[in-house]
Design a protein around this nucleic acid. Structure first.
Lengths: 201, 201, 201, 201
DNA sequence: CATGAATGAGGATTCATTCAT
DNA sequence: GATGAATGAATCCTCATTCAT
């Protein structure tokens, strides 16, 4: 009626977020397939049955987590804009421990979700939607004029480089998953070259 | 004892490979968690029980598959050396359908295994071993003098670029998993820039 | 206290009937075991919790539905009295779609309830009570003199035939459940013979 | 190869029958919906998981039970042929306690299955198949010449009466379920009249 | 060596019922 | 009176692993 979320709506939203937070934590810790609904429920401090009042099934939870990633990634992209040294920002991002940061999924979970995209059409579609949006966001940034914080690439080039950029980011996620203890300085130098290629006029 | 594989040894090896081949096919098709031992056994044309004579458990199978990847990747690297256009080779690799090529794992399986590396220490260690070897191989290539098919980078630089290279490759795998239908030409242009950065003197 | 239902009493009665109507509709549609309290509540336009203010549990609802059947069946019997062609009336009853007629239970639900009578003593007792009453009603009709709309059977015979009659009716319900698309004409001829036997002097 | 069931086949058949026997016993005792797979497994003296090697799911078990009914009913029909007093045979059948006779389903289970026929299309189809076969068998008997143990009805009439007969039988099952303690003599007299109508030339 | 039957713990999900508001 | 969120036991089913043959 009013457009203002009712108390009930707000509660529903809160519960959904409580569940998503717990599920994310569990998925990060144990992996998507190993984390059981019972564990998620316990982590969320509720009974297993209650989860099903807010999510149709386990899959719907991951779907929601995936969807929530868009906003987070867009936020990350926006942070990058105001950065002097992009390579350092990326490597920092690589280094950051997500243990506390419950909102963001860990690199291993990112890998699992990506893998799942190839198995489950729904997840595939959700991930695809995000990837398109992120690439668009990146292309926009790269194309924007330097005095507006952009890099002034031609639109066509910007789109190509946006793709190169996500490849770089995905590659970093994979590295983080496979070699979490990789030397920071070493990584920095490797990323420097790639970032330069992405931004090159 | 003798260093010469006995007949029994050879049979054991054959059985292991039969299982690994079947398991790889199943993991590629259904994913590591979804593929059941029963399916693998059926695919290998043997009984489920028999698998346990050759592998301690399901985990040992992936471990073996991961280990077998080293040789395959090294082969790939060697193929790259004799390539004119590295970017095209990489993109071709991206495009190639692995349906027939039973030895090589698919991109989604690569993602799954990488994720598993963060959950299972044994897998983590196995993957780490491979990554080090591959990076060494790549660094060696990049450092080798151009008249020997190399790129003549300084050893230190070569190591950095080798890392950049695996990041690029992993990124491509992730892309293939998340957007399998990505336009080839588009991808080619994006990879061109990154490859140039990797090889740049 | 007063014998006159208070306003509260009347409201209670209304609520009970609202629930019974909804429950009957749900049981007819989905079956007694499959229909959930949540569905019944939604159908009745109330909250699940409220149902428990008017019925102790799910079982009590069926019990009430069963009990409400007596009046309906007696009404049916009374309608039969003024019928020329009993067989046609029965077959019509068989044919009638109960979709609209929310009060009357469908043949499948009749079967389910009968089965439940053997599992749940309370339901068994309730059903037994109805069956006795219906048989008495039928016997009374069969024994009544023809000029009063009866069939003038001797009381003892009437009781036997009443039993035969309910067997016939139950058999029709079973048929309707098992072969809902049974040819009408075919059925009519079969019932003719049986009805004749029931009414035969 | 030989047409002779192999040992494995025979074992599979034995296991299936062990399960069906246990399931029938459980369904008779607790009802189809209330009997759990765990209970059935325990009754069969095996683990729950093993049942799924022989039946796809719970539904497949009932389906198999239903299908096995055809042979049993046909046997019953054949027994009726050599009977002097059909009404007595039917009533005896009504009286017989099936507790021991594990093969035959009880009247309540018959009711449950009939009800289920209206809910589950597979069960509906299976039951329909049986009903057609049984009616055909009965019609054949009624049409056969008296010196061959038949009743010499015209084929068309025989078909009608076969329908009347199953209505009578179903009615008896319903009665047995709803009033298991019904007086035998009373029932006998009621059935006499109906049987006469079925057999009447 | 090989089979495949058997186990049983564990997983996702449902739903009658309760109770704080 | 009325709500509907919350519970948690129970259900069906899967599957890695074992072991008698």
């Amino acid at each position: 009626m009013t457009g203002v979320p009712s108390v009930a709506e707000s509660h529903k939203q809160q519960q959904r977020e409580r569940i998503l937070k717990a599920a994310t934590r569990c998925f990060v810790r144990e992996g998507f397939h190993s984390a059981s609904m019972a564990t998620i429920a316990a982590t969320a401090g509720m009974s297993p049955g209650l989860i099903y009042r807010y999510f149709e099934n386990k899959n719907a939870i991951i779907l929601a987590i995936i969807e929530s990633q868009l906003a987070i990634i867009q936020q990350r992209v926006r942070e990058m804009r105001s950065t002097d040294d992009l390579a350092t920002t990326l490597v920092d991002y690589f280094e950051s421990q997500d243990a506390e940061d419950v909102e963001s999924i860990s690199a291993p979970l990112f890998m699992e979700m990506s893998a799942e995209a190839a198995r489950d059409p729904e997840i595939g579609a959700a991930i695809h939607r995000i990837d398109l949006a992120v690439r668009a966001e990146l292309a926009d940034w790269l194309a924007r004029s330097p005095d507006k914080g952009g890099h002034g690439l031609a639109p066509e080039i910007a789109r190509q480089r946006a793709l190169a950029f996500v490849i770089l980011i995905d590659g970093l996620k994979a590295r983080k998953t496979r070699e979490p203890d990789l030397d920071r300085a070493c990584l920095k130098r490797a990323v420097d070259a790639l970032v330069a290629a992405v931004l090159e006029r």
